[in-house]
Structure formats: C-alpha cells, structure tokens
C-alpha cells in the first residue's frame, strides 16, 4: 500500500426507489473503486432501506439494483456500516437486511460479512476519521 491511500466514505441517507440518489451513489462507488483507496459506505436514516431483502421492482418498472450491493465485495468494497438506531426507528433489524459477503483473497477466499452494525455514536466517530466524505 502506498502512502497516498486516503479514507473515502460514502454516506447513504436516502430510500432507494423514490429518488435516484441511491443508485447514483452505488455507481459512483463502483467507478471510484478503481482508484485503490480505502473505501467504506455508511447507511443511516432512510439509507438503511437500500439494504432490505426481497426488493422486487417488476411492478414499478424501474431497474432493480438491490442485487448490485452483492457485487461490492468483488470491487474490494467490504466495509458497509449500518446504524443501529436508524434500523430501530424504522421497525427493522439486521435480519431484514441482505446477507452481504465478501471473499478474503488472503484468507483462502473465506466468506466474511460486509455489513457492520454500529451505534450512532460509533458511526459519528467513524465518519470523523475519514479524509473525504461524499453525501448522497
């Protein structure tokens, strides 16, 4: 790793299908992943809805991009912070979210969890540690 690696965090605070923000964020993350930086994603407020299981947009005729979150591991994006309080306020638990994994090349391709459940206070500190923050 070079000295130039910066910590990039993408903040996802919007629900997925009513506006374009969630998909735009995901596209920027996938493009940005080519630059070999230390990338992480935060999901809080309505952003936690992006990770809900069993989304099926066939009835509203829009692209269903929820399966794309499962590809993030391939792009070496392996840190998805989800805020506990945001889930609770919305009547949700970790079990309602997709089971996102990444494969650790350095550990015989062992499957590891991408989602890290954190408290609001923890997330605040994690965001503060970043060099660059993108908001969606």
């Amino acid at each position: 790793m070079s000295e130039d690696i910066k910590k990039f965090m993408y903040l996802n605070r919007r629900a997925p299908h009513g506006t374009i923000y969630a998909w735009e964020s995901l596209e920027v993350v996938l493009i940005g992943a080519a630059f070999d930086q230390d990338v992480s994603l935060a999901f809080f407020d309505d952003g936690v809805y992006q990770l809900l299981k069993s989304q099926d947009t066939s009835g509203i005729e829009t692209k269903n991009f929820s399966p794309t979150y499962s590809a993030l591991g391939d792009y070496d994006v392996t840190k998805l912070y989800v805020e506990q309080e945001s889930l609770e306020e919305r009547g949700l638990t970790l079990d309602d979210l997709m089971d996102l994994k990444w494969e650790d090349e350095d550990d015989d391709w062992a499957e590891k969890d991408s989602i890290r459940l954190v408290s609001r206070a923890e997330l605040t500190d994690i965001i503060e540690q970043q060099d660059i923050v993108f908001s969606f």
């Binding site: 997925p16 299908h17 299981k53 069993s54 989304q55 066939s58 009835g59 509203i60 829009t62 269903n64």
Partner: peptide, 12 residues
C-alpha cells in the same frame, strides 16, 4: 407494487 419494490413483505 411499491411495497414489493421496497422489500416490505406482508409480515412487516
């Protein structure tokens, strides 16, 4: 259709 798109199943 909007419930289904957002993964809000009947049990929720």
């Amino acid at each position: 259709a909007d419930l289904k798109a957002r993964g809000i199943t009947d049990d929720k």
